[in-house]
Simulated assay, not measured.
Amino acid sequence: MSRKEAKESVFWLKIIKATNASEFEKINSVLIQEADELKKILSAILEKSK
């Protein structure tokens, strides 16, 4: 469930980045990167727990 939420967060942050002014670009890029890293961590945990 957490992995799905992280993936959805990346999706919405990318939409925000595509539709908003450049003033949010830097923080948005950081948030996308952090959500993507969290998604990868959660995916690795799920794979190892199988």
Score class of each variant (00 low, 15 high):
residue 16 I to G: 09
residue 18 A to M: 09
residue 15 I to Y: 02
residue 27 I to F: 15
residue 33 Q to S: 14
residue 5 E to A: 04
residue 12 W to L: 06
residue 38 L to Q: 06
residue 46 L to M: 08
residue 5 E to F: 04
residue 40 K to N: 15
residue 10 V to R: 01
residue 6 A to M: 02
residue 36 D to Y: 10
residue 8 E to Q: 10
residue 24 F to S: 06
residue 50 K to W: 04
residue 45 I to C: 04
residue 16 I to D: 06
residue 3 R to Q: 08
residue 43 S to H: 12
residue 17 K to D: 00
residue 6 A to F: 03
residue 26 K to V: 05
residue 30 V to C: 06
residue 37 E to H: 09
residue 33 Q to T: 13
residue 40 K to L: 14
residue 22 S to C: 05
residue 36 D to L: 10
residue 38 L to S: 09
residue 20 N to H: 13
residue 50 K to V: 08
residue 15 I to W: 01
residue 33 Q to L: 13
residue 3 R to K: 07
residue 31 L to F: 12
residue 2 S to L: 12
residue 29 S to I: 02
residue 32 I to S: 00
residue 16 I to K: 10
residue 8 E to P: 01
residue 45 I to Y: 09
residue 3 R to N: 03
residue 48 K to F: 05
residue 45 I to D: 05
residue 32 I to M: 03
residue 43 S to E: 15
residue 33 Q to R: 15
residue 8 E to N: 08
residue 26 K to L: 06
residue 28 N to A: 04
residue 9 S to V: 01
residue 40 K to Y: 08
residue 41 I to D: 11
residue 38 L to K: 13
residue 36 D to K: 12
residue 31 L to H: 03
residue 46 L to I: 07
residue 3 R to D: 03
residue 17 K to H: 02
residue 10 V to T: 04
residue 44 A to Y: 06
residue 16 I to Y: 08
residue 33 Q to C: 09
residue 4 K to D: 12
residue 19 T to H: 13
residue 41 I to C: 07
residue 47 E to Q: 14
residue 2 S to Q: 09
residue 7 K to M: 04
residue 26 K to A: 10
residue 2 S to H: 09
residue 9 S to W: 01
residue 3 R to C: 02
residue 43 S to M: 10
residue 32 I to Q: 01
residue 33 Q to M: 11
residue 40 K to D: 15
residue 16 I to R: 12
residue 2 S to D: 11
residue 18 A to T: 06
